[in-house]
């Protein structure tokens, strides 16, 4: 993978990567899709059949008003009803660390979808480590701005942790992207990447 700049999509560089990964005319499910911006973009630019799940009613309303089919539901439970392999891609963008049962969510993603795209903030980034080392408190950076008692991030993970879980689940990592700001990085991603994006499937 080459280092280089990533242009933002809808103000986010991980969306740009996801937009690059998703093949046209596929079926996509976005978990924790917020107001459906990414799905709307994928539907109009890649002709995908776009569906979403979101827990916040206010965000679901905005997504539906945009014309995206989103239903209000908790990700931890929301996938159970879907038949196997109903989607080409199941996207989980910056949400894995907020789920109660991340391993189960990952398994469910690969049950209902042929491939999973997981983007998450890397807790192993050097700034995080320095923050912890010098402050001695739960790290706070621009990526993890919350006080520990307010943070939605209940299952923080690093690039290495995700690779280990993928191996444990015998997943094939088809592609991996590491981002620092608007740059793709490859040297020591567990130290240098702020955000990682993985495309995985069952072996």
């Amino acid at each position: 993978m080459k280092s280089g700049f990533v242009r933002e999509l809808l103000g986010r560089s991980d969306y740009a990567i996801i937009g690059e990964i998703v093949e046209p005319q596929t079926k996509v499910l976005d978990l924790g899709c917020g107001e459906g911006e990414l799905l709307e973009w994928l539907a109009s630019n890649k002709g995908v059949d776009a569906r979403g799940v979101e827990i916040s009613g206010a965000k679901v309303q905005k997504a539906i008003a945009r014309g995206v089919s989103v239903f209000q539901c908790d990700i931890d439970e929301g996938l159970a009803d879907y038949p196997d392999q109903a989607f080409d891609y199941v996207i989980l963008s910056q949400t894995l660390q907020e789920t109660r049962h991340p391993r189960k969510v990952l398994r469910e993603m690969l049950r209902v979808g042929r491939k999973a795209i997981v983007a998450f903030p890397n807790f192993g980034h050097w700034r995080m480590r320095m923050s912890m080392l010098f402050s001695g408190g739960a790290p706070r950076t621009s990526l993890f701005p919350y006080e520990w008692y307010e943070s939605p991030n209940i299952h923080i993970l690093t690039v290495r942790d995700f690779e280990a879980l993928a191996a444990l689940e015998s997943l094939v990592v088809e592609r991996r992207y590491f981002l620092a700001g608007h740059r793709k990085v490859e040297w020591q991603p567990n130290l240098t990447a702020e955000v990682a994006v993985f495309l995985v499937r069952r072996g």
């Binding site: 569906r51 679901v60 089919s69 989103v70 209000q72 038949p83």
Partner: peptide, 11 residues
């Protein structure tokens, strides 16, 4: 959803 129909839902 179990029949993978296109459905949006909000309460």
């Amino acid at each position: 959803r179990s029949r993978n129909r296109d459905v949006a839902y909000v309460e």
